[in-house]
Structures are given as C-alpha cells and as structure tokens.
Design a protein around this nucleic acid. Structure first.
Lengths: 229, 229
DNA sequence: ATTACTACTAAACGAGTAC
DNA sequence: TGTACTCGTTTAGTAGTAA
C-alpha cells in the first residue's frame, strides 16, 4: 500500500503486542508467531527481519529462543493507527466530505466582503491564513453534490462573527476548512450575502487558486471539506 | 493472513471511513481511492469488488459516480480492530505471557488442597470451572522462564480466599487464567502451600490434562497466561 | 468521464534444507 | 530444537483496454 507491505507489518506488530511484546521483552518463536498470523514459519521469520530492519522491533537471538520487544518507534505506529481509529469511531460526523464543481466567474463581489478588515482579521485568526482578496466560485452540477452540500450545514463549522460598519451590517459567516484538488488549503464560505443559491460554492484561500492550479472556467474541481470534531 | 487479504481489506475500509463512508453514503471513484491507498485504479477497483462480496460495503454505481457506504458488518470489523487496539494500548500490563516448562510428577499433594470444598466453590465461581482434582506440574528450565514467572507476581490475579477448617488454616491463593498448548483452558496457582520453588508451575484445569493432551514426564508444554485488565 | 476485464509483471509465500 | 537461506509456486498488482 502506501508503503510496501506496511499493512502486514502493522498486523504483525499487532499480534506481537497481543503477546505482550510492547510492554516487555517476550520470547516468541517464528513458528509460534506463524500460528498467530495464520502464515508459515518462513513468512513469520521474514516479517521479523523486516520489522527489525525498520526499527519497529528489537530482537535478541539466544539459546533460549528469540527475544522480541516492540521499540518506541513500533509502539508509535500502533498508537498512530489507534488514534485514527478512535477519531473515526468516536466522532459523530464523517471526518471529511468531497464535493465536485465547475469553475465559473462570479460578479467579483466576494472580493469586496473578504477585503473587509473585520473579516480578514478573523479569517487569519480562525482559519490560519490571510485570504487572497477574491473567491473561487464552483457550480455544483449533480444531485449528489447539492444534497451533500446541504448536509454540510448540519455539521460544525468555524464561525466568523458579523459586524456593523458606519453604513451597513455584515452578517456572520460559517467557514469549512478544505483542501482543493488535494493540494491547496482553503475554506468554503457560507451565508456570505450571496447572489448564488445552494448549488454554488464560494472558496477562499491564501493564494489565487485560479493561477496556482491553472484553473479556467468550465474546469472540474474536487474539494475535500474537513468536518471539525 | 488469518484470512486471505483481510489485512488489506481492513486497510481499505479504514481509508473509506476516512472519507466518511462509515457515516454516510460517499461518492468515491476507484481512481480517488487508489490515490489514498497508494495503489493503482485497478487494484482499488478489485478491492471494492472484494469488499462488496464480503458484505463490508454497499455500492451503487450511478451516472454521478460510484456511491459507497460501509455496512454495519464493515463497521463492526473496524470496531473490532479499534477495540483490540484500545485494549492493548491502554492496559498497563501485557495482555498475556507465555511460559514453557517440562512435565514432571509431583507428590500429588496439590490434589488434597484442590479437593477442599471451600477452594472448589471459589474456583468454580471465580475461574468458571470445577477443577479436576490434581495439578499438572511444570518445571521451568530457562532463566527467561523463571524471570518471567516472577514478573507475573506483580500483575493482577484472581484472588481465592483462604479459610480455616476445624484443625488448620488454608491460605489465600492467587490464580492466573491460562491456555495450555493453545488448546485447553486452566489456571496457574501460586502460594498454594507448595514444596516447590519459583521454578515450578502448578496448573489446574477442568479436565485431566495429562490424558487430554497425552502428556508424559519430560514433555515440553507451552502455557499462555492471561493478564487481567 | 468511469468501472473492471484480460494478460502480463512483480512480489509474496512456503517447501526444502543448511546451519 | 531454533532461524533463515534458496528457489519454484502462488498470489497480488498493473498496463492496456473494452464497455
């Protein structure tokens, strides 16, 4: 997978941990491990060699047998897996949602709002970036995308407060952090006083996305919206 | 492994869950999944077919793309993995410890103690079985085994209370549930008024282990002692 | 655009065996 | 006993491509 055979190495590590090798040095023969893995003695031996090379376990081969202990590095790997599983299983919401839309040119009004100092300050503070003064507009075309976008409203978001200037009122804005095309960080804005309906996404980012991602009107773009825990 | 490719199927399920497919129906193309897996589109496609066959996911192929949702069965698999990892990572003790010893014939005194009604009642209640009236004695031969056996004393055990009969006092007994040769359930007894030192294990079981496992003096036997959470 | 087939390549597996 | 090598076999992975 992501890294060659990392999946089976983790599985082996799990079995070793079940034999206590993450808490103490345990005597585990390749034959015994093989039984726990449902594989051959040779395969178990190979795995132990590979885990050793990776630094995930420490081995001492003595006359009494092969003494094995999972290293700090190996324990960290298990912990990582545990953390992501815990996050997934205990969160009520999906961790992310992917939407796809088509680039189009808006009326350029988004830039007006984003440039407002009172919004900008909050974007920087709450989203971690100072937005490029302009929005990327995406038109959702499928029923799946508009439905999913509506689902989003029910999930927690970053709340940017509204304010009143000398002449008018600027409403609060809900922001959903996201990744555009698996490359650039940004955020989806909703409830910006928009002329667009629910089938339009307005996206801000620290950079000019059209230039950075070489986007033109009509291009399809995937965004992965991150749901807050 | 234990079951063919179950390891990679779980990994794929994890990635699908990271895309929210355990909480909602998500649109995930084989190409996109492939990217997350670090594999080819064809491999991702094959995995989805296999997961579908297993009943771990549900798929609907529409014109809008492939809609995927992890089934209850699939979620259960992830939950199972999560549970075992939680158990491993959060327990302070190793979940089990394996010891190896050589069968020898004792003085038969163990039987006398075990047969005592006040002990038997507690064994049945706290260990879940009525012990065969006799102990299997194992002599630990390596330095690793005696050292490990001593470690055991620090771990939590099932406590069987002592009592006083008309003529004498019977001390408390610590029991560690275990599996003998990966086959039979039993328990290790310690602090039975024993003539043996720390290099001897006294094991009870609901059956006559010598007969059930065809054991003779001098045979090597592996026991896996379970540590209580 | 997408999925998934077929045909091939690469990798993992395990039987035999040396140590 | 045990581990781990070689090497033939099996299995997983991918490119090309049809639907």
């Amino acid at each position: 997978m992501t890294e060659k055979n990392v999946c089976r190495h983790l599985f082996t590590l799990l079995k070793l941990a079940e034999m206590g090798a993450h808490r103490r040095t345990a005597r585990i023969s390749t034959e015994y491990l093989a039984g726990k893995l449902g594989a051959s003695q040779q395969t178990a031996s190979r795995y132990l060699i590979e885990l050793d090379k990776k630094g995930w376990i420490e081995r001492t081969i003595t006359v009494e047998g092969c003494l094995i202990r999972i290293t700090e590095l190996g324990t960290k790997e298990l912990q990582k897996l545990y953390s992501s599983l815990r996050f997934l299983m205990e969160a009520a919401y999906p961790p992310s949602i992917t939407l796809e839309g088509t680039v189009f040119t808006g009326l350029g009004e988004g830039a007006y709002y984003i440039a407002k100092e009172q919004y900008r300050r909050q974007f920087l503070e709450k989203l971690g970036f100072d937005p490029y003064p302009g929005t990327l507009n995406l038109k959702l075309t499928t029923e799946y995308d508009t439905r999913t976008r509506n689902e989003l409203e029910a999930y927690p978001a970053v709340e940017v407060e509204g304010f009143t200037s000398e002449d008018r009122t600027f409403g609060p804005v809900k922001c959903y952090p996201l990744t555009i095309e698996n490359k650039e960080k940004g955020a989806l804005l909703t409830a910006l006083r928009s002329h667009y309906d629910a089938s339009v996404l307005e996206i801000i980012a620290p950079v000019l996305l059209r230039k950075r991602l070489k986007l033109k009107d009509g291009n399809k773009v995937k965004v992965e919206v991150l749901i807050l825990p």
